[in-house]
Amino acid sequence: MSNVIWAPLTRQADETPYTCKLKVYWKTTRLWTDSDIQAYHAQVPQLAEAARLSGRRFTCEDFTLELLCDFASKRGLPVKLTDGVREYRNMDIYDPDYHENYPQTPRGFITMVMVSFGAPDIQRSGENTVRLSDPRALLPGDILALSHDSKGRASGGRAHHIQVVTGKTESSISIYQGNSNWQIHKPITWVNKLFGRNSADPSQDAYAGMKPETGLFIRAANGWNYRNNTTGATQTDFLKYFELYRWDFLEFNH
Rank of each mutant, 00 (worst) to 15 (best):
T29S: 07
Q204P: 02
K27V: 00
E213A: 10
S155C: 10
T33I: 05
E100N: 13
Y102C: 05
D97V: 14
T214P: 00
Q38F: 06
F242W: 08
E170G: 15
E61P: 09
R246E: 11
D121C: 11
P8R: 03
Q183H: 05
S171L: 11
P106K: 06
E49H: 10
D62R: 11
S203R: 05
Q38R: 13
L239W: 04
T129L: 03
A220R: 14
G178D: 07
E87K: 13
Y226E: 04
F238L: 14
A221G: 09
S116K: 09
T166G: 11
Q43N: 11
A220S: 14
G126Y: 08
M114R: 03
P106A: 07
A154V: 14
K186F: 08
L244Q: 00
S147T: 11
N253K: 06
G152Y: 00
P140V: 08
K151G: 11
T166I: 10
T28Y: 04
P17I: 13
S125F: 10
N128F: 00
D14P: 10
P135K: 04
D237Y: 07
H160F: 02
G84N: 05
T10A: 15
S133D: 14
S155R: 12
E213V: 01
Q123H: 10
A200N: 08
D134S: 09
E66M: 08
V165D: 14
R56M: 05
G55H: 07
P140I: 09
F109A: 00
Y102N: 14
P45C: 12
L138T: 02
K168D: 11
G156V: 14
S174C: 12
L68G: 03
N229L: 09
R158D: 09
K27Q: 10
S125V: 14
Y241I: 01
R136Y: 06
G232S: 01
I175K: 01
D70W: 00
D70G: 04
L9A: 12
A154H: 00
G196Y: 02
I184H: 02
T129I: 03
N198F: 12
T64S: 04
A48F: 06
T64W: 01
M91D: 07
E243F: 03
A220F: 07
I188R: 12
N192Y: 06
S180W: 09
V44M: 05
